[in-house]
Amino acid sequence: MAYRKRTLSRRIGVYVCVLLVLGFILSPYLLGIVTSFESEAELVGRPPFPFKAITPVLDNYIYILSYMPFSLAFIDSALVAVTTTCFVMIAGSMGAFAIAHLRFRGRNFLFNFVVVVYMLPALAMLIPIVVLLKELALLDTIIGMVFAHSVLLLPLMTWFLVGIYESVPADILEALQMDGTSRIRSLFREVIPLSRFGFFLILVFSFVTSWNDLMFANTVGIVSVKLLQPRILEFMSGARVMHTQMAAAGILSSLPVVALAIVLQRQIIAGIMKGAIK
């Protein structure tokens, strides 16, 4: 770039704005982390954190990690999220394969229909699903929860997977046919690695959506299956957990998904380098 309009004041302006924006984005976390290391007494006493020094303590984390309901909820959430993701990926791939490749009457209609479903707010679907699950005696079970989350995710993921299949260049698929992989299953095995990035995106999206969900988790799970987010809601509405402990719980709950998001972002950048996306 030959133009030298980068005056010093402009550079400073950019950095200041960037710092402000980053501050905006990160401050809840930063404060949350600090709070989780405070003791409740210190927290409540004014003035609050930035204006006084504090001595960090690990008590909150120790408490939370050993607090059975929380740990159970953490594990259950992980279980549900992983299972849902697997289910959606497998079922979605199969469905996307059918939609992308086979010609049957009403195929286009079915496809558009699936997308339209997604427009409906989740609650509208939740109500009948809860009724259905109750009739199937699956309410308040892990399986029921997995199904519920799958309903939330399957349409969009399938739609996305169809896009992925269609983006594989036709001549490579033909080369595969010539080279001996006309069996559908092995066609699969070759196609998926070709669109590694898209698959990863779907994986992360599924996991994050399931992990973060509150409404479905709170409604489908009542007593036996208490997932993480409902538990945190409990902490927030109940009086038994202290704010500092709540903060610790919050930080711990975010770790998996935030980590995934950061990994995803790196993949995105790598993907852009290869000219893969959007």
Partner: peptide, 18 residues
């Protein structure tokens, strides 16, 4: 992407603390 990935309840909680 961090705010998007954050569980909304946790986001609510953290902002509340703030």
């Amino acid at each position: 992407l961090i705010p998007w990935a954050t569980p909304p309840i946790v986001a609510a909680m953290l902002m509340y603390v703030l």
